[in-house]
């Protein structure tokens, strides 16, 4: 229990730390949200009035404290760029980014685990070597280059794939998958490469341990040895890796949303930074940090579930 309390306090401290950093960064950033929106035709009288109406004429720390005050009442403030609540803006985009992350993760898991087992079984054989080299290649390709090549060779040839734009799940399920599968694949590819190596090595290490030899010696079938004993005991490092990957996947969505013109959280963040829309940037940054911290927390809990020897302590 104290563990959970400790973790929760740590979470709060992390979020405060990130919020303050974001605020300080925005204090230094040159540029003004209202002028950036209105452009070079802006009328001075208009700029002044709009700043007053939006509360942007007050000093930075006053605006920030006002925002923090709202936070404790569950209000993340209003976007300057879009004149509407930040919470709503994030919630609208969440399904897109989340679907993208989940689909990529599913792809990673579906590909990695069988491939890792396959490769581990053939240690030091050519197929293992090829797979290893291939995954190194997967890590080396820039994600957006993969995305562009996928658009060029797959997206353009098959009607099924929507390249550029998002079809909501409520409109058409196949349409949504069609618009998300290529970007998800783009995000997944380098992650497959990373996690594949972990899975392979974890399984290799386990399968050299005594109990596995004993099991084999007793004549237990190879499939049962692998799936029942080795895989289960390799899960801890594997879960760690998937935890790490999810953070990478979330980061990956930012670039990939740009390549495939998906209106997700990442695109919103980039727009918000370039328009100096502090409430939105703050909201998204805290949100992402929250998700990553919570995932790490879940990973820790999973450790304990998978291996009762591990106690939840700091």
């Amino acid at each position: 229990m104290t563990y959970v309390v400790r973790r929760f306090l740590l979470l709060v401290v992390t979020l405060i730390f990130i919020s303050v950093i974001t605020f300080l960064v925005f204090q230094i950033l040159p540029g003004d949200p209202v002028r950036t929106m209105l452009g070079p035709d802006a009328d001075e009288a208009q700029v002044e009035t709009l700043k007053q109406q939006l509360g942007l004429d007050q000093p930075g720390h006053v605006q920030y404290l006002h925002l923090v005050e709202g936070f404790f009442q569950g209000d993340m403030g209003d976007s300057i760029r879009f004149s509407r609540p930040v919470t709503g803006l994030i919630m609208e985009r969440l399904p897109i980014t989340l679907s993208l992350a989940v689909i990529s993760l599913i792809i990673v898991i579906l590909v990695t685990i069988p491939l890792g087992i396959f490769s581990a079984k053939r240690e030091k054989k050519w197929s293992d070597f090829f797979l290893s080299s291939f995954t190194q290649l997967g890590m080396a390709v820039p994600t957006f280059f993969v995305g562009m090549v996928l658009i060029l060779f797959i997206g353009m040839s098959f009607q099924f794939f929507t390249t550029g734009g998002y079809v909501p799940w409520s409109e058409s399920i196949t349409g949504a998958i069609g618009s998300l599968i290529l970007p998800a694949l783009t995000i997944a590819l380098p992650q497959i490469a990373i996690s594949f190596r972990y899975v392979r090595n974890a399984i290799l290490e386990q399968s050299k341990l005594d109990y596995v030899r004993t099991a084999r010696g007793k004549g237990v079938s190879e499939a049962i040895v692998i799936y029942k004993h080795v895989l289960r005991n390799s899960l801890i490092p594997v879960v760690t890796v998937f935890g790490l990957i999810l953070a990478e996947v979330i980061a990956g969505t930012i670039v990939v949303e740009q390549v495939f013109s998906l209106p997700g959280i990442g695109r919103l963040l980039i727009t918000a930074v370039s328009y100096r829309d502090f409430p939105v940037v703050q909201g998204i940054v805290l949100y992402i940090a929250l998700v990553v911290v919570v995932i790490n927390f879940i990973v820790d809990i999973l450790y304990a579930v998978l291996d009762p020897r591990i106690r939840l302590k700091s």
Binding site: I151, G155, M156, Q159, T162, T163, G164, G165, Q258, F260, S261
Partner: peptide, 18 residues
């Protein structure tokens, strides 16, 4: 009015009928 900043995507959407 559809907001799309990327020319390439816009062109693909035109060709795709969206």
């Amino acid at each position: 009015f559809v907001f799309q900043s990327d020319n390439q995507s816009a062109l693909l959407s035109l060709q795709g009928g969206q």
